[in-house]
Design a protein around this nucleic acid. Structure first.
Length: 887
RNA sequence: GCCGCUGUGGUGGAAUUGGCAGACGCGUCGGAUUUAGGAUCCGAUGGGCAACCGUGCAGGUUCGAGCCCUGUCAGCGGCACCA
């Protein structure tokens, strides 16, 4: 078959027919399948794109065949640093290079044969999109969720911009790997911390990979503890946060972060110089050094003392950079006996170490950091309490004193969104010397990004150097003012794009409520795991904020999340230029076609794991497709009407059952994104199911083959369309086109002009179970011991199970009365069995509704009820197969 | 250090709710076809002569465990001076 022309033909047909466009008037339930949109980098689609979009698209098709009105849009995350860095290197303007890249990628995405709804396409760098990104900023500002403050920020000296915490990996810039330095800058922040609790608790209800949910949980980092107020001798309150207030009686000193506001103030004249020096030192030390756990702790005594709120004891106040200014209160109470860090610090500076917790039932060895029994509370009488109990009591006491109390703390920091770069959405704020920071009125949006800018990297934002852009008037007082020279982090753009898709052409608002209500939330979201703590967290934050402003009616943007794995190079390493192991999709698509390529991606890997690429793998797929075609061509010969009806009822029923089972099975897996194992041509005609049929199919010259001819074709073409439609797309449709024989299709298959858009509803099991084939397998001692015929009526099966059946199973299983190894005569077995079941306890067991107390027999019956179709069939098939072989 | 995930043939990886482990491929071996090679098709392929034994290791629950429980080891991923 000429795969390329077939692909082209069908892709054009779909395009013309607009079958991929979401139909808002349809009555069918909606299903929103979303893949993370692409960043238009210079290169063509790489294998990661294909792996993300190909199988996800097959999933979308599957949902469509199940009768859903599927919405699957595609767009481009077009702003971002790489385009700007490319401009600095080559002089090509980011807008030009981005547009060119998008054009290329669009073409490639279309050639992939995916059913993207291009009518909803969005590009975040276009005015009609970033206008609304700016609108989002204004809304957050109005709601008090965007604010400006001077804060120590992560500065990447190579990218010349600040980075969000999430973008700093091991003290280095996520993008360029340079060492990040700390800098004080006035920047815009989004108050994501306001939603910390909901972002955390909402995770429980999401159908997301556990791993990802855990990463977010860690990132949010909730800890339950207690705030305690100490007082300096001069009277300044020093609040500390601790999760171990049960150790409060062991406090022998206090430590402040070097950036703590009281650090300088508390220093005594004698210590002033040393303190200044230390603060200086800490500011210079870069993140890497500071974060290293192996590094020896450093610190300095302020000369000041603080008063312990419970004991009235005076304890020295130290500065040390092992305390972080940005977490908790920026100050900790040090309990060297029960904290490793405090212990190490106390040892080094010769501070007292006092045991106040005792190990329960054992020798207490310091530092002892586990829960234990309070022993050092003195007159306050907390001695003897353990762990939580002690913490509860002490925290309650502290709050009664008015010196603090229970407190929740989060590791999550506010999201820094200013970027000193050009290629992003300008921050819609004007700085007026009179009015201060004034938001740009909605009607003046968008704040347009100028085209003619200077990219030379000199630490200043390119926009800051663009006079025409910067000079403006204050919207409030009308006086001369300056624009904010920064742009928004590109993660702001991607925090709401899934909403825009629903109403991409709207030029009056970011989205209409009606459109969003119809399509959102996203039912299945597919993309890489690397966004766990950034995009996926930010997007959730946006959704919740917009909900609270009344624009949305749901809490979570992505109901279900699937991460695709990573396709590695043939050598098992990550694909990279330095390894020289990059597999380019293009050459394979050229040789085998897009369908074969996609099929291999689904078939050759576990979707969420990925794995090394193999040339043999894709060859095997090509071979598979070849065999399907041959099989269909062969069966074409069996068309004679008389012979068509010659196959027996039993065979037909058997085949129906198999088809039903496989279709159901496939469906079960497909909804879980487990595609790989269910493309077995052979299984359909396997010995387990229909040995005769398989022979007939594989040897078309055999006499037996003729009666099955039509059935085979029906099955391959009609029943298994579910496989082909999804994964073989164009190819399958052409096969079908050439051999359409739908006359005998009994399923509720709705025909339309375009084969792959059939709605497929597998028939119910009940309709397939007949008097002939309703059987259960009898399992006993772990093996199948036989089959039992019963009623085909699924609903009434339970009551129709006759006592003999039940008792026989009981006998076989529990007592072994009828076990093959039991040598007694039949009547002896029967007598023993009857005596056994006459016992009250056995009777009770047999009637017990509790699953736990069910006997084996009952469980077997239940099991068989659930599985009977498959086991019954297998028994039938294998018996028949054996008989035939013997004959 | 803490949290999470994963351990199945020579190999990628199957196995529904605990129910015939190793599907479907790749590779290998044998056969057919071919002047030959390639391609294609057919058969065999966990171990053991056998009964049997086999899902990282050691236990446990169960009539029955790859799957559930306890412990342990290894690999991967994330977090990491977060008080």
């Amino acid at each position: 078959m000429d795969i390329k022309s077939v692909e082209k033909k069908w892709q054009q047909k779909w395009e013309k027919s607009k079958l991929n466009v979401f139909d808002p008037r349809s009555d069918a339930p909606k299903y929103y399948v979303l893949e993370m949109f692409s960043y238009p980098s210079g290169a063509k689609l790489h294998i990661g794109h294909w792996y993300n979009y190909g199988p996800a698209d097959s999933f979308a098709r599957f949902k469509r065949m199940q009768g859903y009105n599927v919405f699957q849009p595609m767009g481009f995350d077009a702003f971002g640093l790489p385009a700007e860095n490319y401009a600095i290197k080559t002089g090509v303007h980011p807008k030009d290079s981005t547009e060119k890249n998008i054009e290329t990628m669009e073409r490639q995405l279309r050639a992939m044969g995916a059913m993207f709804d291009w009518s909803a396409e969005i590009k975040t760098c276009e005015e009609n999109y970033y206008k609304w990104t700016q609108w989002m900023f204004l809304k957050l500002y109005q709601k008090g969720l965007a604010y400006r403050k001077e804060a120590p920020v992560n500065w990447c000296p190579s990218c010349n911009t600040v980075l969000a915490n999430e973008q700093v990996i091991d003290g280095r810039c996520e993008r360029c790997d340079s060492v990040v330095v700390r800098k004080n800058l006035t920047q815009w922040f989004f108050k994501i911390t306001e939603y910390a609790e909901e972002l955390l608790s909402g995770l429980d209800r999401l159908d997301w990979p556990e791993k990802t949910k855990n990463m977010q949980r860690n990132w949010i980092g909730k800890s339950t503890g207690c705030e305690i107020e100490f007082t300096s001798e001069q009277g300044d309150p020093i609040r500390v946060f601790t999760t171990r207030c049960d150790t409060v009686f062991g406090v022998t000193y206090i430590v402040l972060a070097p950036e703590h506001p009281l650090a300088r103030k508390l220093a005594t004249p004698e210590q002033r110089e040393a303190v200044e020096e230390y603060i200086d030192y800490a500011a210079r030390a870069n993140e890497i050094e500071r974060l290293s756990t192996t590094r020896e702790k450093t610190g300095v005594f302020t000369g000041a003392y603080a008063v312990h709120p419970l004991t009235g004891r005076k304890v020295p106040v130290y500065l040390a950079d092992y305390v972080l200014a940005t977490y908790g209160t920026g100050a900790v109470m040090a309990v060297p006996a029960h904290d490793e860090r405090d212990y190490a610090f106390a040892k080094k500076y010769g501070l007292p170490i006092e045991k106040v917790i005792e190990k329960r039932g054992g020798e207490t060895e310091l530092p002892f950091c586990e829960d234990g029994i309070v022993v050092g509370s003195g007159a306050l009488n907390f001695d003897g309490l353990f762990g939580d109990e002690a913490r509860d009591a002490i925290a309650t006491y502290i709050s009664k004193l008015g010196k603090g109390g229970k407190k929740l703390n989060y590791r999550l920091r506010d999201w820094l969104v200013s970027r000193q770069r050009y290629w992003g959405a300008p921050i819609p704020v004007v700085h007026c010397p009179v009015c201060g920071a004034v938001p740009v009125p909605e009607k003046d949006l968008p704040v347009k990004l100028p085209y003619d800018v200077e990219f030379r990297p000199d630490g200043k934002s390119p926009l800051a150097k663009h006079e025409k852009f910067m000079r403006t008037t204050c919207p409030k007082c009308g006086g001369a003012a300056q624009r904010d020279p920064d742009t928004l982090d590109t993660f702001v753009c991607s925090s709401w794009y899934y909403l825009r898709y629903a109403d991409a052409a709207n030029d009056r608002e970011p989205f209409s409520r009606a459109a969003v209500d119809r399509l959102l939330p996203v039912d299945t979201y597919v993309g890489g795991a690397e966004h766990a703590c950034m995009h996926l967290l930010y997007a959730r934050f946006f959704t919740k904020a917009l909900r609270d402003m009344g624009y949305l009616d749901f809490d979570e943007p992505f109901k279900r999340l699937v991460h695709q794995g990573v396709i590695l190079g043939p050598d098992g390493n990550r694909m990279s230029k330095s390894h020289g192991n990059i597999v380019s999709p293009d050459e394979y698509v050229e040789q085998y076609g897009a369908d074969a390529f996609r099929l291999y991606l689904m078939f050759g890997f576990s979707y969420t794991e990925g794995g090394p690429w193999s040339d043999d793998g894709i060859k095997a797929i090509a071979k598979f497709m070849d065999r399907v075609e041959k099989l269909v061509l062969k069966t074409e010969e069996y068309k004679k009407p008389k012979e068509q009806e010659a196959y027996g009822a039993a065979e037909k029923d058997g085949l129906d059952l198999v088809a039903w089972g496989v279709v159901r099975e496939y469906g079960n897996r497909a909804v879980r994104h487990e595609f790989s194992p269910y493309l077995r041509l052979d299984e359909l005609y396997d010995g387990a199911a229909c040995a005769e049929l398989r022979e007939a199919v594989l040897d078309c010259n055999a006499e037996l083959g003729a009666p099955f001819g039509k059935l085979v074709r029906r099955d391959i073409v009609a029943e298994n369309r579910i496989f082909f439609d999804e994964e073989l797309l164009n190819y399958a449709e052409d096969v079908e086109w050439n051999f359409r024989l739908f006359a005998s299709v009994r399923r509720a298959v709705i025909l339309s002009e375009y084969a792959h858009h059939y709605v497929y509803h597998p028939a119910s099991l009940t309709s397939l179970i007949t008097e002939q084939n309703a059987q259960s397998a009898v399992l006993c001692f772990g093996k199948i011991r036989g089959g039992i015929k019963h009623t085909p009526d699924e609903e009434r099966l339970q009551e129709q199970i006759d006592y003999r059946f039940l008792f026989m199973l009981t006998a076989i299983s529990i007592c072994g009365f009828f076990h093959p190894k039991n040598e007694a005569s039949y009547s002896e077995k029967k007598r023993a069995f009857k005596a056994y079941v006459a016992q009250d306890e056995v009777k009770r067991t047999l009637r017990s509704p509790s699953r736990k107390r069910l006997s084996f027999a009952q469980r077997t019956v239940i099991f068989c009820m659930r599985h009977r179709w498959c086991f019954a069939l297998r028994i039938l098939a294998s018996v028949r197969y054996r008989e035939k072989k013997a004959a």
